[in-house]
């Protein structure tokens, strides 16, 4: 899927769909997003222990 560039009044792809086909498209798009999200998260978290990660990233100071 190509990235959509937003600078005008175009509706989001699929966003205006109200027919059955439009809903199917939205559902398919959402599923693709969630599958990609799951893979991206698993990749980012590979071999990491969340508690240890948070401990290692404990910050001192900052704004």
């Amino acid at each position: 899927m190509r990235q959509r560039e937003r600078q005008d009044n175009r509706p989001p792809s699929g966003g205006g769909g109200d027919s059955g086909g439009g809903l199917d498209h939205l559902r398919e798009q959402a599923n693709r997003f969630l599958a990609a999200g799951d893979e991206a998260i698993n990749h980012a978290l590979a071999d990491s222990d969340s508690e240890a990660f948070l401990r290692a990233n404990r910050q001192h100071g900052g704004e």
Binding site: E5, R6, A36, A40
Partner: peptide
């Protein structure tokens, strides 16, 4: 992966 629509 091309699943976002945030680009401007």
């Amino acid at each position: 992966r091309g699943v976002l629509d945030h680009k401007v």
